[in-house]
Amino acid sequence: MAKCRTCSIIVSYNPEIENLVALTKTLALQDDFVVIVDNNSHNKESILSITKSLDRCHSILLDKNTGIAHAQNIGIEFALAENYTHIVFFDQDSSIDEYYIRDQLQVFAKLKSQHPKLAALGPAFVDKKHGFHYKIVNIDRYGRRTKIDTQHMQKPFAASLIISSGSLVSADALRDIGPMDERFFIDYVDTEWCLRAHAKGYVIFVNPQIQMLHAIGDNSLKLLKWRVPVHSAFRRYYRIRNAFFLLKMPHVPTLLALREIAFNLVHQLVLILFGQNKMGYVRSLWRGLKDGLNGKY
């Protein structure tokens, strides 16, 4: 059996350097290689200094913000060219322990012996600010959703969708399934890739024994018993536009795409009514609808 060689890909954009240093150092101690792909951050010289100071680290500094999907693909291209067997994706604010890669590789290998077409293994997520466990969403062939609570689960389980951050992906699966769809820029990139993987007969698992802290949105609004994530108007444009793109893809269940469209429109209305920068959200709603319906990338 060939030795596992992992390459971690961190995508950064104006990161907090302290967080990025901590993540990179932790990975450098347990990983074969670490690549930071930076989307033209204002502090990219500091990012360059991180990788220069550590062994088995490399940075790729892009001259403009090309989106998370393109940045991930730059890292994927590097890892595949160097014949790494597994790729692990991270956000710039991810936080892991010193055994993360080892533990995930062990579980991946065990699952792979039972499921030859295993594409990816993700962690469970805990909200960074409020401490609750994010539920994993499974969907059937018609797009009907089932939520899985990972809080008290012990064994890995199959999942329809996982977040790219923290996910361990087989390089062979990536070669077959294909890279991230750069047309999405940022939102639904991992959703589309997971659904494409399933359409090709692959399976995806979650390991609830491995947990990562995660935060959705820059902030949140508390409305009655609901907590509504708040993203920038810039980000909300892609969220709305890309939901319409999902509707046109044969490997995406229609019901799922329609739900995302409806949910995003309601979410946008809440932000317009109760959030800051109301006109910014109105403009991003208009642009998202116009470009989504016209299929403009």
Rank of each mutant, 00 (worst) to 15 (best):
F205M: 04
I204Q: 00
Y188C: 05
P208Y: 03
Y202D: 03
D190E: 09
R196F: 03
Q211M: 09
A171D: 11
I204W: 00
G178C: 10
P179A: 14
I210F: 01
L195I: 11
Q209T: 15
S167E: 02
V206A: 01
C194L: 08
F205G: 00
L168I: 07
S167C: 13
A171G: 12
E182H: 06
G178M: 08
D190R: 05
E192F: 04
W193T: 07
F205Q: 03
T191A: 03
A199L: 12
G178Q: 10
D181H: 09
F184V: 04
F184Q: 00
K200V: 10
V189Y: 00
M180K: 12
T191G: 01
Y188H: 15
Q209D: 13
D190Y: 04
D181V: 06
G178E: 07
A171K: 05
L168M: 13
Q209M: 15
G201Q: 14
D190S: 13
L195V: 14
A171C: 11
W193F: 14
W193I: 10
R175P: 06
S170F: 03
E182A: 06
M180D: 08
Q209H: 06
D187F: 07
G178F: 04
I186C: 09
R183F: 14
R183V: 11
A173Q: 08
P208I: 06
L168S: 06
H198E: 13
Y202V: 11
D172F: 06
R196N: 14
G201M: 12
H198V: 02
Q209E: 14
F184N: 01
E182L: 07
E182R: 11
C194H: 00
F205N: 00
A199M: 09
L168P: 04
V206C: 09
V169N: 10
Y188A: 05
S167P: 02
E182K: 08
V169Y: 13
D172Q: 12
D190H: 03
G201H: 12
G178L: 06
I204N: 00
R196W: 03
V206H: 01
F205K: 05
F185P: 01
L174Q: 05
G166V: 05
Q209I: 04
F205P: 02
P179F: 08
